[in-house]
């Protein structure tokens, strides 16, 4: 997974010292910005659903359908249009793996 993420988002942006760890950081921090609505670590007890521990493929599908408007949303389409498909997949991996 690390390699895959790097190849999508790292190109041309990271300096020589960058490693696969840098791509992990990018996803970890970006996913952490979702906590504001989806709860700390993606765990929510409120009307906005939690993401932690959900099935990876379900999360990918949900986010891609939000992006194309195949799924009706209030805010999520506006969010998803701002992320690459690679970032969406990496965030799905991230949230699926939260225990």
């Amino acid at each position: 997974m690390k390699k895959k993420v790097m190849s999508f988002i790292g190109i041309g942006l990271y300096a020589v010292t960058a490693t696969a760890g840098a791509a992990d950081t990018h996803i970890r921090v970006t996913a952490a910005t979702c906590y504001i609505c989806h709860g700390p670590n993606g765990k929510s007890e409120h009307a906005i659903p939690g993401l932690a521990g959900q099935d990876r493929n379900y999360l990918v599908q949900a986010m891609k359908e939000q992006k194309t408007a195949a799924r009706e949303t209030t805010v999520m389409r506006k969010y998803m249009l701002g992320y690459t498909d690679a970032e969406i997949e990496a965030m799905a991996d991230f949230f699926a793996s939260v225990k």
Binding site: A15, V29, T30, T33
Partner: peptide, 10 residues
């Protein structure tokens, strides 16, 4: 380490 040069804000 080098910080991420291109972070994202929502």
């Amino acid at each position: 380490r080098e910080p991420n040069p291109a972070p994202i804000i929502g």
